[in-house]
Every structure is written in C-alpha cells, then in structure tokens.
Simulated assay, not measured.
Amino acid sequence: MGTSSPVTITVEAIVHSPVASVWKFWTEPKHIKQWNNASDDWHTPIAENDLRVGGAFVSRMEAKDGSFGFDFGGVYDEVSLNESIAYTLGDGRKVSISFIAQGDDTKIVESFEAEETNGVEMQQAGWQAILDNFKKYAESAKEE
C-alpha cells in the first residue's frame, strides 16, 4: 500500500427526467434493484437503503448464472435531498454524487476513489456502465 492520495474517477450522465424523479429512482431499493448492474448478465437481487447521515446501504450484486457475487455498501456522510449524496464504502473509499437540475433534465456527476485491484480504466468503464443503465431506466420508468 502506498501513501499517495487515491486516484479519483468521475463519471457523468444527463438524464432526461426531473431531479425529484431521478432522486427517487436512485435511492429507493425497489428501483435500485432494476438498474444497478453494468451488464445484462448481472443483477441486484437485494438492495437496502437507510438514506440519512450515518445510515447504511447495501446492494447485493450477482452474476445471473450464480458464478460470482458481492455486497456493495457503505455509510452515508452527507445527504442533501435532490442535490447530493456522499458516502464512505466499506473499504474506506469516498464517493460523492451530485444531482444538478437542468430544466426538466438532471445531470448526475459521480466521483469515487479508485481501488487498487483493478485498473482505473476498467473501474471508470464499470461505473459509467452502471450510470448509463440508470439513465436508461430512469428515462423509461414510471413513478409509483
């Protein structure tokens, strides 16, 4: 382990949906289970979210064929309704997400500290794929 600062990676997307809807789709477990995967051969069968400072969240991400799975989770450091979320992952890395209203659209900017196992490009591609999947879901989903 080095003592240098971790690399911060940023991914972003413009979602053609109002910020209040985007926030709901991003934070409610019934919606998280619908979009939280980087490819069609993965899914999120379990999602729990205690959306408050000090609250925890976890999403169980699994290959649909059952060959691999892991829990992705952490604790919220900041929650500002319809504006931003910041959290610390279980391994200590920091993540921040901004939801920027642009008329009837929402710009999402997600920054995270890279982990040391996988390459930066791979991590950026994976997180961008999940964000792109969220965009597709949020633009087609109906609020309940």
Rank of each mutant, 00 (worst) to 15 (best):
V19S: 03
D104S: 10
S80K: 15
I46T: 12
D104I: 09
T88Y: 06
D40R: 08
T8P: 00
D40P: 10
D91Q: 13
I9K: 01
N49H: 02
A101L: 10
L51M: 12
F99T: 00
I100T: 12
W35M: 13
K30L: 09
S17N: 14
R52H: 15
L81I: 11
H43N: 15
D41W: 05
F99L: 01
V11T: 06
E83I: 04
D50F: 08
D104A: 13
T44M: 03
A47S: 11
T10K: 04
S4L: 14
F72V: 11
H43C: 15
K64L: 12
F68P: 01
F68T: 08
I9R: 01
V22H: 00
H31F: 09
F72C: 08
V19N: 01
F72E: 12
D41P: 06
H43Y: 15
V53I: 09
S4K: 14
G103Q: 07
V95C: 15
N82L: 06
T27A: 07
D104Q: 13
K94F: 14
K64Q: 12
G74F: 07
I85P: 02
E28M: 10
P18K: 08
V75N: 01
I85W: 05
H43G: 13
P45E: 11
Y76W: 10
E62Y: 05
A86T: 10
P45W: 11
E48P: 02
F99E: 00
A13T: 15
S59P: 00
Y76E: 07
F25T: 04
E12R: 09
G73T: 01
V19R: 01
M61T: 07
G66M: 07
F72W: 10
Q34N: 11
G66T: 09
D50T: 11
I14R: 12
K30V: 13
G90P: 00
P18E: 06
Y87K: 03
T3Y: 14
F70K: 04
D40W: 05
V7I: 14
T44N: 10
V53F: 01
S39D: 12
E48Y: 05
G69L: 06
G54K: 04
E62K: 14
N36W: 09
S5G: 09
F25Y: 10
S59G: 05
E28S: 09
G103K: 02
G54C: 06
R60C: 08
G74W: 03
F68L: 03
V15A: 02
V22F: 00
N49L: 03
F99N: 00
L89Y: 02
V79D: 08
H31V: 04
K94M: 15
H31G: 03
N82R: 04
V15M: 06
T44S: 13
G103S: 10
D50H: 14
I9M: 03
W26L: 08
S98L: 09
